[in-house]
Structure formats: structure tokens, C-alpha cells
Design a protein around this nucleic acid. Structure first.
Length: 770
DNA sequence: GGTTCAGTCACAAAAGGCTA
DNA sequence: TAGCCTTTTGTGACTGAACC
């Protein structure tokens, strides 16, 4: 009705835009629903869209905080065509120190970034740490992108002072951190995002390489997770054609007191004598000292006893390096006949942001061998059919594959070949021990022999941690970040790569043995049970391969030893409390004689817990509230309702708790107040009471109702116990037609056997026991 | 150091249930 | 049918953990 009325008014107005401005400023919701009119008639109204109206519309945009509304106003009032009028207004807003985010949001909506200098909007946003807003503006303007990155590079290289820039941008306070590290990170991200030549940012690139090297030095000398040989190879690669970086690397070797490795680096990186530090020159000129340092270096290398780590349990001769097609075919034939394989891959780390990861090795372990597929040799030799053969191992459901954090590897492998990609999509019978670890540690920790004997300073993570939990020794990760592109691989690299795949089978066999020993049915199905959500969300059902790992669902595990006995419960003895969003279900449950408390619209869902504690009520809820409340209530006393339809919801509850609802339960309880006591009234008595209601009658007329147990005042409509009967809700027609009226003893609501009763009976008939 | 994945959090928009 | 209140859903940023 209102829409039609509005339409009529609009058609009579000389300028509907004026009217809209008024409406919008009075009531934004009104605008939200009615602005479509302007959009529909945009062509007819063009001549009426004068600048003063557009300025008014812009002013309204400033006030409105809702993005969607602003978009509609910009469209409806064609504000993009009024940029010349609005840009000066926006600049005034910047000068007035208004909220920069709001200004930039309008600039973006009006596509007028090019009307603002870098220092007018981009840099102030940057200094106020509103990076996202700033990026939204940069996204659409290549020139601004280059200008900003060039300035950022100068900041990283200390070629400009922040204080000078602040002055020129008219910004008084700096928000957020402006450390070179953070600036550098931002620069690298934007260079990649906007696909800009790295030559524009030499300082950022230099700093990035130096940071990577610092990190490698730290892993090598502090964490013992990288060999000095690999470190030197990475240093040579990263410092190619960069003399300054080479001298900085030499400084790093001296900083870590490893003059001998510095000496080796000088040789490998062809550093001119003029740049060699005097400590290294001393070694070069003193052969005795050099020999002494070499020995010290070797001793340090062997310092760590191999007994400290988990070792490969097959001989070195059982590691087969595959480099030719012939070797590839023999290996694949053998692998096809195996029932269980351990699979891992090694990649060359990406230490420079513009370089991509390169696949170096695929390791596949069988019960007595490990095949190392050398991808550096094989990649050029393999055809799509060869890749397909590797893929078949993954899609073959008869071969069980044991992996650790394989998702990333899988994604990268899929880029190599279409046949391999298809097989990976159909990957079957794969166990990722990373998932296993998370689930079993939480739910079945007793399966791990060494779970309680972790040393205080235990720093091993990932696969190494799992190996420790099973066997009491971690993996030696010295070669984890190894320089995998070197050939031939060192013995240490070959052993590391083989062990990474073979230990997966060791863990698999260990878990099998332990579950037998501890009497678990099967650790794989226990893991599956723990990972299957009880209430699948839309999100999880989208991807069947996505596993459910949320800690929220930890409690959802179905312990096979704790199955609850299924007993029938009569409806009248079953007590529940319904959360706010299940008020409708609550009323239906009451009409089935189930004792139901219902939270009102203003109650917090935690009130359910009070009801559970007080009366042992089962909590019925859904969605996130279920996960929140689940933490405080035993599994047996909470249920998440899945269905959106009332009938189905009712069925869910009845089935889950084995509630027996009989014909006599229907309407044995008041739907409004949950009371289960009713009085019976003669309809004629109520008819008289209805007639008298509202009249200013003096005195009273008492009649006997409820089979003579209660007296009822017809004039006042109340019983002798003070209960007000809601007679006004009963139509006269009903009072003349039905034989008996039932009145709730608590709230006075009237019920009768009519069409309403039939309808409700039909709604619950599917759960009645016949 | 890099990357990717998965989970968490905050926010906005959409949707559900109830009421008048 | 509209309005109100609340929850759910979707999205994007952020974080931590895994890998190399």
C-alpha cells in the first residue's frame, strides 16, 4: 500500500530528487526501500539532476555509514559524473582532518583517485596505518602504485626522512610501526600484487635478500637445522652479482665466529681480495692456521651424536635414486604391487619473493626400500603418461598412502601435469599423520609411548615431534632446508630424504601395533570418528576432502566404549529447554506434553545452562550456540537441531531421545505457560462472562465450574483463586458450538476441540506412537 | 626467510521467529 | 506485511603451524 502511495506522490512532484534528499535525511530505512524509483526513472529525470542536488546527495553520503546505501546514492544521483564538484569538497574534508577512511571510501566509489596527489591521500593513509584503505585506492591506478613503491623504497634505504614526509603530507602523528622490516614486507607484497619490476625498489630487494640470509645463518648456527655446506650454497646463489651483499655475508660469517666457512665462501663466490676481511686474509696466507681451522670445523660438524636422533632402519643400499626412465619404470612396477607406501617430497626453499618453489625429490617408501625420484633429472624426461603412472598410485584405493601435511605438496604436484592432477583429485586411501597426531594426542594419548616423557626444552615440531611421541627420539632436521638442487646429493641428504618417507611407515606400523596392544578397535576408524562432525555445516559439506579439525569439535568424538543405552522416555517425564531461536519448536513440544522451558527473545542463551543445572533439562539449540554451550553440558543433555522445518525438528528430538508420545499426551499441557493442569468450563458460562466483560456492573455473580471444584465470577471473569480466564480470545461461535472449554489453571488460556486443535494434531501426528 | 593451509575474529548483510 | 530483535552466514584480515 505504502509503495503505491509513494509512487503516486512522486509522480506529482516537480523534482523528486529534492523530496528524496528530505526523506533520506529523515529516515534512512525509508530511503533504502524506495530509492529504486530514481534508478528506474534515471533517463527521464536527467535534466533535474542539478549540481546543488548532487552536493546534497554527497552530504548525505557523508552521514550515512552503510556502504550499500552509499553505493546506491552514488548510482542514483550519478555522482561519478559530478567529480569536478565533489573533489574540492573531499579535499576540504581532508583539510578539516575528517575521517580519512570515509574520504578514501568516497574517492574510491567516485573513481577519482587521479585527482589526488600521493601526499594528499595515499601517504596520510599510510602514515595513519590504514594500509588496506590505501591499497584500495592504489589498486586502480598504476602510476600511483609506482610512485608509492618508489617512495617506500627510499624510506627503506634511508634516502628520505620520515619527519620530512610527515610535514609534506600535513600529518602530525604517526600510527603503527615504520620499521624497515615492516616497510620491506609491504613493499614486497605490493611489488608482487601489482606485478611491478623489482628494479624499481633496489633497497627493498637488497634488504629482503639480506634478511633471508640472516634467517639461514640463525637456523644454521643457533638451531642446528641447516648444514654449513647448504648455507654456503644459498649464500653464493643469493649474492650473485651483488658485491655489497657478498661483503655483508662475510660479516655474518665473522659475526658467527666461523672464519673457516667465510674463507670457503670467498673462494666459491669469487670475492675480490680488496673486499676480503683481514681475519680471512690471515687464513689465506697461513696454511698451518688454515689446517687447524679446517679440523676444528670438521669436529664441530660431527659434534652431535647420531644416537640423539631417530635413525633409518634399512641399509643405505636399500635407498634407490631414480634418475632415468628405465629406473623409473622398474620402480613404478614395484610400487604398484605394494599395499602401503610412505610418501614425501623435497622442494628448494623460496628465499627470494619472485622465485617459485621447485620440486627436487619425490620420496616413496615401501616396507623394505625407499625410492628417491630425482626430479631435477626426471622432469625433462617424464611424459604425461609417466606422470599418470605416479598419479595412479595416489588414486588406487588398494594402496594405502601415508603422508604428513601433504595438502600443500599435493597442490604443487597438481600443477605439473593434467593426468597427475586428475589422479590427485581422486586421491583415495590416504592417511595424513598430521591429522592423526592432532586427533590421537587429544583423544587417545595413551597410544603414544613417550607422550609423558618429553624433555623440558622440547622444541621439535611436526613430523619430528610425532616420531618422538612414538619412538622417544626426534628426527635430525639438519637437512630440512637443505640445498636440494645440488647434484650429486650428499649422503646426509639422501639419508634424510629417505628417512622422511620411511619413518611414515614406521609410525603407521607402530600405531597398528599399539592399538592392538591397547585393545582399540582400529586407530584409523577412531581418528575418522573424531574428525566427523556431528552437525555438518554448509561449509564443511562443500568440500568432502576438507577434514574437520576445529578444536571446537574436540568434544564431538563418539567414544565407542561409552555408548548410551537407548531407553524409551514417556513424554510427560522428558524435560527440555529451548533456545530463543527454537521458540516455535518449544510450543510444539509442549503440545505433545513435553515439559518445555522456552527462552524469551531477550534472554541470553546461557540461561539454558541454568535450566540444565536446576532441573536437569536437555538443552535444544543450534548453530554456534550449540558449540558454546556444549563446553558446559554433558553430551547427553544437549542437542543441536539441524532442520529448519518445525515438523522435522520435532521428529529429530523425539527420535534422538526415544520419547514416547501417546494420543493422550496431545494438548495435555498449555502451549503458552507449560502448565499441565486444566479446568473444564461450560461454554455457556463463558459466553455470559464474555457478554459482561468491560461493562461497569456492580456486584458479582458466582457460578460453579470445573465439575463443581471451582467457583467463577461471571461479572469479573475470575475464579475464586484469582485466575483471570481469557474469555475474550474465544469467539461467540465457538462458545455456542463446542460442548466443553478447557482453561489453563496457570495462565487462563482457553482451549477447545476445534479446527486449531485439528491443525496442531496434524502437525504432531507423525511422532505419535500408534 | 618464503609459502600454504586452517582456524579465529570482526564486521556487515541476510535470514528467522515473533508480534502487532 | 512490516518492524524488531537475534542469530546465522559470508567475507576478509590476521595468526599460527606446517612445510621447504
Amino acid at each position: 500500500m505504502f509503495s503505491k502511495y509513494m509512487k503516486r506522490i512522486l509522480e506529482t512532484l516537480s523534482n523528486p530528487f529534492e523530496f528524496f534528499c528530505l526523506c533520506i535525511s529523515l529516515e534512512e530505512n525509508l530511503f533504502k526501500t524506495k530509492i529504486a524509483y530514481v534508478q528506474d526513472h534515471q533517463d527521464d529525470l536527467k535534466s533535474l539532476l542539478i549540481p546543488s542536488i548532487q552536493i546534497k546527495a554527497f552530504e548525505i553520503c557523508k552521514i550515512l555509514k552503510l556502504n550499500v546505501l552509499q553505493d546506491v546514492i552514488v548510482k542514483a544521483f550519478s555522482l561519478t559524473s559530478a567529480v569536478s564538484i565533489i573533489v574540492p569538497l573531499l579535499k576540504m574534508e581532508i583539510e578539516k582532518k575528517s575521517n580519512l577512511t570515509d574520504v578514501s571510501s568516497m574517492v574510491k566509489k567516485l573513481h577519482c583517485q587521479s585527482h589526488f596527489d600521493l601526499n594528499e591521500l595515499i601517504m596520510p593513509l599510510f602514515f595513519q596505518n590504514k594500509i588496506l584503505e590505501m591499497e584500495k585506492l592504489l589498486d586502480l591506478n598504476t602510476e600511483l602504485q609506482k610512485e608509492f613503491l618508489s617512495l617506500l623504497d627510499k624510506l627503506v634505504g634511508n634516502e628520505v626522512e620520515i619527519s620530512d614526509l610527515l610535514l609534506s603530507c600535513n600529518v602530525k602523528q604517526l600510527k603503527g610501526q615504520m620499521s624497515p622490516k615492516i616497510l620491506c614486507k609491504l613493499g614486497l607484497r605490493l611489488l608482487k600484487k601489482y606485478n611491478i619490476d623489482t628494479g624499481l625498489c633496489p633497497n627493498i630487494m637488497h634488504r629482503s635478500k639480506l634478511s633471508s640470509l640472516r634467517y639461514l645463518f640463525m637456523r644454521c648456527y643457533h638451531q642446528n637445522e641447516l648444514s654449513i655446506d647448504s648455507l654456503t650454497l644459498f649464500a653464493v646463489e643469493l649474492s650473485e652479482n651483488d658485491t655489497i651483499l657478498k661483503t655483508e655475508i662475510l660479516d655474518l660469517f665473522l659475526e658467527y665466529c666461523d672464519i673457516y666457512s667465510g674463507f670457503l665462501f670467498v673462494q666459491k663466490a669469487n670475492i675480490p681480495q680488496s673486499s676480503v676481511p683481514h681475519q680471512i686474509k690471515y687464513l689465506q696466507n697461513n696454511s698451518n692456521k688454515l689446517e687447524e681451522e679446517r679440523k676444528r670445523h670438521e669436529n664441530n660438524h660431527l659434534k652431535k651424536s647420531k644416537n640423539d636422533f631417530y635413525m633409518l632402519s634399512i641399509p643405505y643400499s636399500s635407498i634407490c635414486q631414480i634418475e632415468t626412465i628405465q629406473e623409473f619404470n622398474i620402480a613404478l612396477e614395484d610400487l604398484k604391487s605394494c599395499s602401503v607406501l610412505g610418501i614425501d617430497t623435497e622442494w628448494k626453499p623460496t628465499l627470494q619473493f619472485d622465485k617459485e618453489e621447485e620440486l627436487m625429490l619425490i620420496q616413496i617408501a615401501t616396507s623394505d626400500k625407499v625410492y628417491l625420484f630425482d626430479m631435477l633429472s626426471l622432469q625433462t624426461l617424464l611424459t604425461s603418461d609417466h606422470w599418470g603412472k605416479i598419479g595412479e598410485l595416489f588414486s588406487n584405493s588398494n594402496i594405502r598412502k601415508i603422508t604428513y601435511s601433504f595438502t600443500g605438496d599435493k597442490k604443487c604436484l597438481a600443477t605439473f601435469d593434467s593426468q597427475l592432477r586428475d589422479h590427485l583429485k581422486r586421491m583415495a586411501n590416504v592417511i595424513d599423520l598430521n591429522d592423526t597426531k592432532k586427533v590421537l594426542v587429544d583423544h587417545y594419548p595413551q597410544i603414544f609411548s613417550y607422550i609423558n616423557s618429553k624433555p623440558e626444552k622440547f622444541s621439535f615440531k611436526g613430523l619430528s615431534e610425532m616420531v618422538y611421541l612414538c619412538f622417544g627420539k626426534p628426527l635430525d632436521k639438519m637437512e630440512q632446508c637443505s640445498y636440494w638442487s645440488i647434484r650429486p646429493l650428499s649422503r646426509s641428504q639422501v639419508v634424510y630424504a629417505a628417512l622422511d618417507a620411511f619413518c611414515l611407515l614406521d609410525i603407521y606400523n607402530y600405531l597398528n601395533e599399539m592399538s592392538l596392544k591397547l585393545g582399540f578397535e582400529d586407530w584409523i576408524s577412531l581418528q575418522k570418528q573424531a574428525m566427523d562432525p556431528v552437525t555438518p555445516t554448509k561449509k564443511s559439506s562443500k568440500s568432502q576432502t576438507t577434514k574437520f579439525k576445529s578444536p571446537k569439535n574436540k568434544n564431538k568424538i563418539k567414544n565407542p566404549q561409552l555408548k548410551e543405552p537407548k531407553q524409551n522416555i514417556p513424554a510427560s517425564l522428558f524435560k527440555v529447554v529451548c533456545d530463543t531461536m527454537l521458540q516455535g519448536l518449544g510450543k510444539h513440544l509442549r503440545s505433545c506434553n513435553i515439559d518445555t522451558e522456552i527462552l524469551s527473545s531477550y534472554d541470553h542463551h546461557e540461561k539454558c545452562i541454568e535450566h540444565f543445572k536446576r532441573d536437569s533439562r536437555v538443552i535444544l539449540t543450534r548453530g554456534n550456540v550449540y558449540h558454546q554451550l556444549r563446553k558446559n553440558v554433558p553430551h547427553s543433555h544437549i542437542m543441536s537441531i539441524r532442520s529448519d522445518r518445525l515438523k522435522m525438528q520435532l521428529e529429530e528430538v523425539v527420535k534422538k531421545f526415544n520419547v514416547v508420545i501417546e494420543e493422550s499426551d496431545i494438548f495435555a499441557r498449555c502451549c503458552e505457560c507449560n502448565c499441565c493442569e486444566f479446568m473444564t468450563f461450560d461454554p455457556q458460562v463463558l459466553s455470559k462472562a464474555k457478554t459482561h466483560k468491560g461493562r461497569s456492573a456492580v456486584g458479582s455473580k458466582l457460578v460453579s465450574v470445573n465439575e463443581g471444584k471451582t467457583s467463577f465470577n461471571i461479572i469479573e471473569g475470575v475464579t475464586d483463586e484469582g485466575l483471570k480466564v481469557r474469555v475474550e480470545e474465544v469467539p461467540y461461535g465457538v462458545l455456542n458450538r463446542v460442548p466443553l472449554i478447557y482453561v489453563c489453571s496457570k495462565c487462563g488460556k482457553c482451549y477447545w476441540d476445534g479446527t486449531h486443535m485439528e491443525r496442531m494434531r496434524a502437525n504432531v501426528s507423525h511422532v505419535i506412537k500408534h
